[in-house]
Design a protein around this nucleic acid. Structure first.
Lengths: 336, 336
DNA sequence: TTGTAGGCGTTATCAC
DNA sequence: GTGATAACGCCTACAA
């Protein structure tokens, strides 16, 4: 029998009905006699007919592809997002396409345009940090392609974003350090974009509320990589005043800071407490295990996918303002 | 002006030529007067025409999608493969689709079939360990979809595989330990499938060549996760004889073994040498940094993509038998 | 070198 | 409920 190289015409001919009737069966049209439906379904099964997706896409003027556009080098993050999107589209006809871009390329908008025109996905999820690029959002709009941006602030209309509250999450983590008696709390900042800025704002807020001044020697900067975490950690440790605790804006840099401490012969958490952000698997695999903030990446990505594919009006607030939670492990101890 | 909602007909009408001529311009047909070509190209640019990929796919009976099918939980591995495939298809019209499957699901073949029928990718890359499933390869064949399997042995015709030589790689690593004076070398095995078996074979071979017996207490088993690495490490350390070196079949388990050693108060590498396999970023971010085997994942994936998309006869041996290299870091020291 | 007719496999329109 | 007929936008064959 035919290996799915049979067409709707074959089914129609054999079942002795019109193409349209077969089409109605495929698309589960309600206005159809039960008898014809069963008959046609039987024929479909017999000859192993499968509708051709390309033809369908042409006729419907849409396909069933969601594209994730990213410039994020962190493997775990990327995979988590993919997992979330896949959860969101599971059970539907959609599939996931992945397109990396180079944030620093001057041709980024054109690159993305070319991709979108070539594949014309039904919807696009923009991952941070490239999600903060308004030009890309506008591009999707102008091409008539739906999009959702994963961000840390209200950068767009609610229906076009999913959002985590980074500021609040960091605020909570720094408060936790303060409650443990820490006052000389340093902060390793991420690269220049919204999400890192929000994290910094959470730190500033917690410090201010506790009446603690944020001195220059408390702040170091990295770009989310392990190496810059080591550098920042060394800078802080060797600075004017040695902090008793460090909050790093992501886990990789936190782990870098741990290594930095070790290089200076400081034991964690006895000589220095460290908190990270992300809850990557790494954080529980090192010694000491890392106290960190788990942010809802998977949930955000899933919400993004749902916002893209659901026809009926979904709650525009879906996935907006998802909360984070502090995971207490072994890299923090109270100050005596 | 039209936002790419113009069709080939619009171009034809405005340029005052036939559809076919426009089509020829798009497809860079050689038999076309330079004058018409330029004229048509000018019109195309003016009205911002972009060929509709769905219509193209229908007419050509093919699309420009490569799908990666995987059931691999390791984020770094997955991202590396994606990167390799993307390198392979960069500059082409192809895009990458990602489809996860559940290896333990009884419906796995049907799930994949449904995916393939729905999207009809031009080609498929099967990642390990699901790449060892012959049924899936047969399925692709029966659907007329090209495929390449990433494997560690000659499981299929050369044109359908890319292969790393895991056996040789592990052989080299274990020989290295032996050269450092180690004899009580334990081995943490991976789950039951070809690649772990090959790694084990490399270990056996190196031991045998050196005239070393492989005792029961030298072998533990894990399933590539950190947790099973800890368990296996503890089992080996607490076993009948304590090994002086451990080779773990992947980095995650190696790091688990490091943690296991720490739990028993053993210093690495002074009290125990450890080698991993993969060279995940992790391995350089921990303390001590992990000596490990880097295997050519990215290259394999890239070769796989090239084998799928290249029209002309590509060397069927492309990507077959890629070599690995030992990365010496801080987790091994010679035995006095 | 260019154009015409027809097909790719589906869905939409609008009668019956 | 069902079925001709015409899109959808591109490409191939064959003519001119």
């Amino acid at each position: 029998m035919a290996n799915s190289n049979s067409t709707i015409n074959d089914v129609a001919r054999i079942a002795n009905v019109s193409k349209k009737t077969v089409s109605r069966v495929i698309n589960k049209s309600p206005l159809l006699s039960e008898k014809t439906r069963e008959h046609v379904e039987k024929v479909i099964k017999e000859i192993g007919y499968v509708p051709n997706p390309q033809a369908r896409a042409l006729a419907l003027r849409r396909n069933f592809i969601i594209a994730a556009i990213h410039d994020n080098p962190n493997a775990q993050f990327l995979v988590n997002v993919q997992q979330g999107i896949l959860e969101g589209i599971s059970g539907s006809e959609f599939a996931l396409m992945v397109e990396p871009v180079d944030r620093n390329s001057p041709t980024i908008v054109n690159d993305v345009r070319q991709f979108l025109e070539r594949q014309r996905p039904y919807g696009v999820v923009l991952l941070p940090p490239v999600s903060e690029n308004d030009e890309l959002a506008d591009l999707c709009d102008s091409l008539g392609i739906r999009y959702v941006r994963m961000v840390s602030g209200e950068l767009d209309k609610p229906e076009n974003i999913v959002m985590s509250n980074d500021r609040e999450a960091v605020y909570g983590a720094v408060r936790y350090l303060i409650e443990q008696g820490h006052q000389k709390i340093a902060f390793i900042e991420g690269p220049d974009s919204l999400s890192p800025a929000e994290r910094r704002a959470g730190y500033d807020q917690a410090m201010a509320e506790a009446g603690l001044l944020v001195h220059d020697w408390m702040i170091a900067k990295g770009n989310y990589t392990f190496e810059t975490g080591v550098e920042a950690g060394l800078a802080l440790i060797d600075g004017a005043v040695r902090p008793t605790a460090i909050f790093a804006s992501n886990d990789e840099m936190a782990i870098g800071a741990i290594i930095a401490a070790r290089k200076r012969g400081i034991r964690i958490p006895d000589g220095l407490s460290i908190i990270g952000f992300d809850d990557t698997p790494l954080s529980s695999h090192i010694w000491p295990s890392l106290t960190t903030v788990r942010w809802p990446i998977v949930e955000m990505a899933k919400a993004a996918a749902l916002k893209l594919i659901e026809d009926e009006e979904t709650d525009p607030m879906l996935g907006v303002g998802l909360g984070s939670v502090l995971i207490e492990r072994g890299s923090v101890r109270p100050l005596d």
